[in-house]
Design a protein around this nucleic acid. Structure first.
Length: 295
DNA sequence: ACTGGATCCTGCCTGC
DNA sequence: TGCAGGCAGGATCCAG
C-alpha cells in the first residue's frame, strides 16, 4: 500500500503511542521479513526509549535512547495495529495471544510498551522490513544513503527536476518512481501527479529540461502537481485500498479522489476534457492516463 | 552508466 | 464450487 502519504499517516498514528515510551518486550514470530532481522534485534530494542518517530521517504524512523535507529519499511502490505491495555479482545489476553496476535497469522512482530500498549506489525506479503542501525552505520547505510529529496520540502523545485532529468533516456513515470531522485512517490501518486500536470507517463523525462538544463514549463507544472497531490492525500489520511487500515482502525479517503488511478474506461475528470482514461503497462506495472489532456 | 526485466511473497478477484 | 491465471501500492538485483 504505502507511499509517502500512507506512511506519514501511519507515522502520525503511531507517534503518540511510541514517542517518549520505553519498549519492554519485543517478540519476533519469524526470523525474517523481506530480510533477516539483525542479530540480537529484540535484545537491542528491549529497554530502549523511543525518542522520536519520524519519516524519511517511505521509511518510518525510530530514534532510540541506545543510539540505535530502528528503520521500518512497510513494503506493499505492511501495517501496524495498536492495542491499548484494557481494550484488547478477550481471546487476546495473556501470553497465549502471542501464538497468533489479534488472530492474525501474518502478525510478525509484537512491540510491548512499558505502559501496556501493544503495537503489532503485520505483513502478509513480507515485502516490508525492519533494520536496526548502529550509530556508526547510520550515515552511510544503503537504505537511507542516496535517497533523493523529500517531495514536500523546498529541495524539490523545478530546477532540481530539470537538473536530474536532463539527458535521461527514461520516461517520466520511471523517473518519478526512482527513489534516488525523489523519495516517497510510488505508482499511484506518480500517475495522479502526471495527470494533474497534463503530462503522459510515457513522455521522456528529458523534456523537463531545456537544452541548457533550465526547467521547462512542464517541469514547473509537475512540481506543483506533485506537491498538491501529496498534500491533499496526507490531509485525507492517505488512500485505503483493499482492506488497509490505519493504526487506529480508521481508513484514509484519498482513494475517492483518484482522478486516473484504477479508472480505465471512465471519463477523464479534467474540467472540459472529454477523454476516456486508458490503462497501459510500463515496466511491468499498470499506468493510467488520459490520452486527450496528457501530452 | 543506464535501462528494462525478473523476482521476492501471499491474497484476492476474474473468468472458465 | 473449484481452480488456474493475472494482478497488486515496492525495491533490489542482474544482464545487456
Amino acid at each position: 500500500m504505502p507511499e509517502l502519504p500512507e506512511v506519514e499517516t501511519v507515522r502520525m498514528g503511531l507517534e503518540p503511542v511510541l514517542a517518549g515510551r520505553v519498549l519492554s518486550k519485543v517478540l519476533l514470530r519469524r526470523a525474517d521479513l523481506r530480510f533477516p532481522f539483525a542479530p540480537k534485534f529484540a535484545e537491542r530494542l528491549t529497554g530502549a526509549r523511543i525518542l522520536a518517530l519520524t519519516r524519511r521517504a517511505k521509511y518510518l524512523v525510530a530514534e532510540l535512547s541506545t543510539g540505535d535507529t530502528l528503520v521500518m519499511h512497510l513494503g506493499m502490505t505492511g501495517r501496524f495495529h495498536v492495542q491499548v491495555r484494557g481494550e484488547a479482545a478477550p481471546h487476546l489476553i495473556g501470553d497465549y495471544e502471542y501464538a497468533t496476535p489479534g488472530g492474525d497469522k501474518h502478525a510478525h512482530v509484537v512491540f510491548d510498551m512499558e505502559d501496556g500498549t501493544r503495537v503489532i506489525y503485520s505483513d502478509p506479503r513480507r515485502f516490508g522490513y525492519m533494520l536496526l542501525i548502529a550509530p556508526d552505520e547510520i550515515a552511510m547505510h544503503p537504505a537511507l544513503h542516496g535517497l533523493g529529496v523529500e517531495p514536500l520540502s523546498d529541495a524539490l523545485d523545478a530546477a532540481y527536476l530539470a537538473r536530474h532529468a536532463a539527458g535521461r533516456k527514461t520516461d517520466l513515470k520511471a523517473f518519478l518512481m526512482d527513489q534516488r531522485t525523489i523519495a516517497g512517490l510510488g505508482n499511484i501518486y506518480v500517475l495522479e501527479a502526471l495527470h494533474a500536470a497534463g503530462l503522459k507517463p510515457s513522455r521522456g523525462a528529458s523534456t523537463l529540461a531545456t537544452r541548457s538544463g533550465k526547467p521547462t514549463p512542464a517541469a514547473e507544472r509537475l512540481v506543483a502537481a506533485i506537491k498538491d497531490v501529496l498534500k491533499a492525500a496526507v490531509l485525507a489520511g492517505g488512500s485505503t485500498l483493499r482492506d488497509y487500515r490505519q493504526a487506529d482502525g480508521s481508513t484514509g479517503s484519498f482513494q475517492n479522489t483518484f482522478r486516473v488511478y484504477g479508472r480505465a474506461g471512465e471519463p477523464c475528470l479534467t474540467p472540459g476534457c472529454r477523454g476516456i482514461v486508458r490503462r497501459s503497462v510500463q515496466g511491468g506495472r499498470s499506468s493510467f492516463f488520459c490520452p486527450v489532456c496528457q501530452h
